[in-house]
Computed example of a mutant assay.
Amino acid sequence: MPETTTTIDDQVATFNEGFTAQIGPDLSAVFAAEQAALTESGLPADAVAAGDTLPAAALLDSAGSSVSLGDALGDGRTVLVFYRGSWCPYCNLTLKHYQEALLPELTQRGVKLVAISPQTPEASDLAVSNGGLEFTVLTDPGNALVRQLGILTEPSADARKAHAALGFDVADSNADQTGDIPYPTVLVVEADGRVVFADVHVDYTTRTEVPALLAAVDA
């Protein structure tokens, strides 16, 4: 695997130190309470799991053109990354890390990497350009696929207010102008849509690390 200075967890810890100092204790407490509530609620009972088969889904590429989920999958295995949007610093950090540490390994194995969010194609294009991403980034309009996979959530009301205090709103980025978002999720999928690995994170500050992903791909 290419040399990387840190894991995603290490980078998140470093980011959180600066972010907490920047936004102050009150807003930090709001986000901490949201994360605690998500963790306490646990994984949805109907969340996608290994052994499931993905449903058909109509997606959009970053240019706004229609792409079926079936066409987005590779001839072999595909790694699907569901992320909240380019407004989410944890998502941006993760996608950039996957670009640097995961994509080269998958390319050697002939495995595709595809990222999916509910944000507009324009916002997806921004994620691609800002992160220097060289893998496919798609939009799931209205979270139609995410709903079928049982990984739909939304920021708490207090978190939405905190977002507003920081100058943004999730709905402004989403294709359907709602605050609905997916739990950060990584799937390893066969060409026929069968899921062989699923890792759903209810705490959006945690993500699937590259070694675990590669182990699932190689299994």
Rank of each mutant, 00 (worst) to 15 (best):
P2G: 08
P2A: 05
E3H: 13
T5Q: 12
I8N: 01
D9L: 11
E17S: 13
Q22R: 15
D26L: 15
F31M: 10
Q35E: 11
A36N: 09
A37T: 09
A47N: 09
G51M: 05
D52I: 10
A57M: 10
D61G: 03
S65K: 15
G70I: 03
D71V: 05
D71S: 15
D71Q: 13
F82H: 05
S86L: 11
S86N: 14
P89D: 06
Y90D: 00
L93F: 09
T94V: 09
K96C: 11
Q99C: 09
P104D: 03
E105C: 10
T107V: 07
V111L: 06
I116L: 08
S117G: 01
A123F: 09
G131E: 03
L133Q: 05
F135P: 01
L138Y: 03
L145M: 11
R147K: 14
L149G: 03
G150D: 10
I151H: 00
T153L: 02
P155Q: 02
D158K: 11
A162Q: 04
A171Y: 00
D172V: 12
N174A: 06
G179E: 14
G179S: 14
V196T: 15
A198Q: 03
H201M: 05
V210E: 02
L213F: 11
L214G: 08
A215D: 15
A219R: 15
